[in-house]
Design a binder for these strands. Sequence first.
RNA 1: GCCGCAGUAGUCUAGCCCGGUCUAGGAUGAGGGCCUGUCGAGCCCUUGACCCGGGUUCAAAUCCCGGCUGCGGCGCCA
Length: 429
Amino acid sequence: MYRTNFIADITPEMEQKEIVVAGWIHNIRDLGAKKFILLRDATGIGQVIIERNTKAFEASNDLSLESAVQIRGIVKSDKRAPRGVEVHAEDIVVLSKAKSPLPLDVYGKVKADIDTRLRERLLDLRREEMQAVIRIESEAVRSFRENLYKNRFVEIFTPKIIATATEGGAQLFPVIYFGKEAFLAQSPQLYKELLAGAVERVFEIGPAWRAEDSDTPYHLSEFISADIEMAFADYNDVMGIVEDTIITMANKLKEKCSAELETLNYRLPDISKPIKRITYTEAIETLQSLGVKIKFGDDLATPELRTLNEHLKTDLYFVIDWPAEARPFYTKRKDNKPEISESFDLIFRWLELASGSSRNFRREVLENELRVRGLNTYNFEYFLKWFDYGMPPHAGVGIGLQRLMLMFTGLQNVKEISLFPRDKKRLVP
RNA sequence: GCCGCAGUAGUCUAGCCCGGUCUAGGAUGAGGGCCUGUCGAGCCCUUGACCCGGGUUCAAAUCCCGGCUGCGGCGCCA
C-alpha cells in the first residue's frame, strides 16, 4: 500500500494523525531550515512541511520537481496552510525521481507552445488546466451516457476494421487484413443503422479515422465519435434527443465541474431549449442579404458560418434541411420536396459539432442514391440485404466529441482535447 | 495543398523594421550560497541559445534566396 489518504481527504479534524500520502512534487519552497512542498495527487494539491532534524529533511535533498514520492507524516491543522491543514513530514521515499530541468513547466509559471506541449504531453497532462479538461470530458461522457440510458438507448460497439468506404468522399486509412485490403472505419454509420434495426435505440462512443489533408484546429486523423441511432424516429426526434442530451451535459458540468471550469477560467455558454433552428435555405438567403456571394447548393464553409454566427447572435444552432445532393446516400429526402433532405448540422459558433438525418430505409431508394453518387451497389450488399427484412424508419446523428469539448472547456484546438492527438504530422507520442 | 506570420538556452520571451553599441537582455528551470511560515517565496553568485544551407557586406540574430519545422487562415473533409 502506497498511501493511506488522498490529499483532498485530509481534513483539520485528522489533527495529529499519522498518514502516508503519495503523489508528485508540484513545487518546493526552500527556506533553509524548513521546506514547503506542494504535493499533487489525483485529488488535488496539498502542503507538506519538512523541518530540520527529521529523517525527511535528509531525504529532501534528493527531491526534484515532478518526482513521484511517498511521504509519511503527521497531520496538523494550521490556518496559515493553504487548506487550513498540512502534513509535517517524518519520512520521504522518492519512488521515481524526475530528471531536471523539466522539458515543460507543470507548475504553470512558464507557458509552453502547443507544439512543445504535445511533444511533452504527459507532463502537459499533469498541469492543472489539462487535469480539468480531462475531468470535464469524463463527466461530459458520463452524462451523455446517462441521459441516453434514461431514454432507453443501449450502448453498442461496432467493428472498426471494415471492408468498404461508408460514404465515399473521405479518405480512409488502409490496413492489411490477413492479406486482404481493409480500412479503418471513418464512422460507425452503416453498422449503427443496422443495429437500430435490431435494438431500436443505440449509441456508441468510439474512435473514427479520416486520412484527410485537413490541417486545422478542428480536425484530427483519429477522433472520438459519439453516435446515436434510433428506429421508428425521424430527424426531429433525433434533434430532440441531441438537444436534451447536450443541455443535460451542460447542466451536469455546471453542477459537478464548477472547480474545473473555474480552473479553465471558462463560463459555459447559456444553452437552453429550444436550440435555435434555421433551415439551410434561410441561411443562404440570410447570407445573400448580408452581401455574401453564395447560392443554393453551396456548402456553408467556415467563413460563411462565421458570418452567419455573427448575424444570428447565438452560440449554438441547428442548420436543417440541407440540399439532398450535399448529403450522403443514406440521408432521406423530404417526401414533398425531394431536392431537400431531412438533415441537420449542430453548429457551435462556426464549428460543426454534429451531423444527423432521417435515414433511407427502403432498399430501392438506397440503391438509387448510391447509383446517383457513382457508388457501386455491389460493395454495399452487406448493408443493403438487411433492408429486405423489416428495416424500420430510423434516424441518427454523429457528434464529434473533441469538438463538443471545445464548447465545454473554452479551448480552441481539438488537439488539446485529445490526450494523444493524431494528425497529418503527428504519430507520436 | 495554398496564403500569411514565425523559428533566439530545457521552457517562455526581448532584440530584427533602422546591420556594428549583442561579449545577445529578461523570466523560469538547473548548480552553489543566505534565510524557521512560504503560498508564482525572497536575495546574491554561476550556468546555458541566434533552425539548416547559400548569398550581400569591412561587418549578419538583424537584409536577400532556398529548405525544414511550427502557428493562424483557407482548402480538402463531416
